[in-house]
């Protein structure tokens, strides 16, 4: 009979191979593995305990497409009956004709009329296979081709911070800068507004990503925005709905 012992606390940062707990009283979950009696970390992450279950929250790493994620992608190729979309992950996705539009597309139609190479699209991941072949769809609220604007790529693990609780952070930036902002789960941020306001928005988002570990970041950003976006005309042009 071995005695169970926990070697870490909640929110500790652990490195691969580090022993998290000893004994069969604990259960390994995501980012951990069992090695004989003990549970070890299998990546760099933050410890999260759920009763006897130990899991890790990743701090870094590439985005991997998951079913249901709404992402911002880039059309990189036109296929026989669809488009290839860069998802800013190791794997590109395919947007098929049927999922692209509700319009009827006749045979031999020029597909670039709908989406062309270089177009930025807000799209949804509908299927991911075991070989990480990815399907995306344009059917759903808010899924559309994004017009002129800026895109920037942030660490996908910072996305929850950029959005904030119930979107509090991103709507605060929208209010202060008058820009339209869309954040994809893959870490791509699209924004459009007055050029000088876009610059402030980009700075704000980069600031959030750099200081994402600080608690009370929303208040800090509020102060920063009040100082830096003082002269912005707050009336935001309505987004064209499609």
């Amino acid at each position: 009979m071995t005695t169970d012992a926990l070697n870490v606390k909640e929110k500790d940062i652990v490195v691969p191979g580090e022993s998290l707990a000893v004994g069969m009283g604990f259960l390994p979950s995501w980012g951990t593995y069992r090695d004989g009696d003990s549970i070890r970390a299998s990546r760099l992450g933050l410890v999260q305990m759920d009763g006897k279950v130990i899991k890790l929250v990743p701090l870094s790493g590439a985005y991997l497409p998951r079913m249901g994620d709404v992402i911002i992608g880039l059309v990189i190729d036109v296929l026989m009956s669809g488009w290839r979309v860069d998802t800013f992950s190791p794997y590109s996705a395919v947007l098929t004709l049927a999922e692209a539009t509700s319009e009827f597309i006749p045979k031999k139609a020029d597909l670039t009329k709908y989406f062309d190479i270089g177009d930025v699209i807000m799209t949804k991941v509908t299927n991911v296979t075991s070989q990480n072949l990815v399907d995306v769809s344009m059917k759903g609220p808010g899924l559309r081709k994004l017009g002129p604007g800026r895109t920037l790529v942030v660490d996908p693990h910072r996305v929850p911070r950029v959005i904030g609780k119930n979107g509090s952070m991103v709507s605060m930036i929208k209010d202060h800068t008058g820009c339209n902002i869309l954040v994809g789960q893959n870490g791509v941020v699209w924004l459009s507004g007055e050029p000088e306001n876009e610059v402030i928005t980009v700075q704000a988002i980069e600031r959030i990503c750099a200081e994402s570990h600080i608690s009370g970041l929303t208040e800090k950003m509020q102060r920063w925005l009040e100082q830096n976006a003082k002269h912005v005309n707050r009336s935001r042009p309505q987004e064209p709905m499609q």
């Binding site: 490195v15 691969p16 191979g17 980012g31 593995y33 070890r40 299998s42 990546r43 760099l44 990743p58 701090l59 870094s60 790493g61 590439a62």
Partner: peptide, 11 residues
């Protein structure tokens, strides 16, 4: 490799 967030058994 650990910093890149890749799954590893150990350093």
């Amino acid at each position: 490799l650990a910093d890149a967030g890749l799954p590893m058994k150990d350093l």
